[in-house]
């Protein structure tokens, strides 16, 4: 299907906001593709990392928000490291992913689940608990046996074990996370 490029003011405003939050000038991009070329996840992506910027520039935000790519980015920052203009592409992707999640557009549900469980975990214990994360992730996504072969190795090296992996400042971490959540809720109310 073709894309009409007229009347894209709202989408362009959204793209501009995401770019501003990430500290990026979208017009800096040469479209050289060095980001895509070095991306370890690009093989599984539907939009190349380079294309995400071009879609945003033209105000084709629907394509970006619907894409799998914004969920598959591992935020490894290889692209930023190699970019001739030092464009914070993971920052743009994170902004796009947050916007997609707000709209209930979950491109890859496993990634979404993983992130949610991880954050819940941190909120509860002050640190991530591998056992809890693995267990909950496998049960909620239905991938029951995923990574189970690694268990003996992880036990042996005490990466996982019977005792909890906690921190003394657990309460402060929880406070921090609640404040972040409150700020997001505030923002949502402001939008409505």
């Amino acid at each position: 299907m073709d894309r009409c490029l007229n009347n894209r003011e709202n989408a362009k405003a959204l793209a501009a906001r995401i770019a501003k939050d990430a500290g990026v000038d979208l017009q800096d991009c040469y479209q050289c593709g060095k980001c895509s070329g070095g991306c370890p996840m690009a093989g599984d992506m539907d939009l190349m990392p380079r294309q995400i910027i071009q879609y945003m520039r033209l105000g084709l935000m629907g394509d970006v928000l619907r894409s799998k790519s914004i969920w598959l980015c591992a935020a490894c920052h290889t692209c930023v490291d190699r970019c001739p203009h030092d464009i914070n592409l993971p920052g743009l992707i994170e902004g796009a992913r947050m916007e997609a999640k707000r709209r209930g557009m979950i491109g890859v549900k496993e990634v979404d689940k993983f992130t949610d469980i991880f954050l819940e975990n941190v909120k509860m214990f002050g640190k991530n608990q591998e056992v809890v994360l693995e267990g909950l992730y496998n049960v909620t996504t239905g991938h029951l046996m995923q990574d189970m072969v690694n268990v003996p190795h992880m036990l042996k090296h005490k990466i996982v074990g019977p005792e909890l992996n906690t921190t003394k400042q657990a309460a402060e971490v929880k406070e921090l996370m609640l404040r972040a959540q409150a700020a997001e809720n505030e923002r949502k109310r402001g939008e409505q």
Binding site: R3, L5, N6, Q51, Q54, D63
Partner: peptide
């Protein structure tokens, strides 16, 4: 005006 954005690999139109 109809063309392709060959960076996106998609047809685009502009009025």
């Amino acid at each position: 005006c109809r063309g392709e954005d060959s960076l996106l690999g998609r047809q685009v139109t502009v009025e």
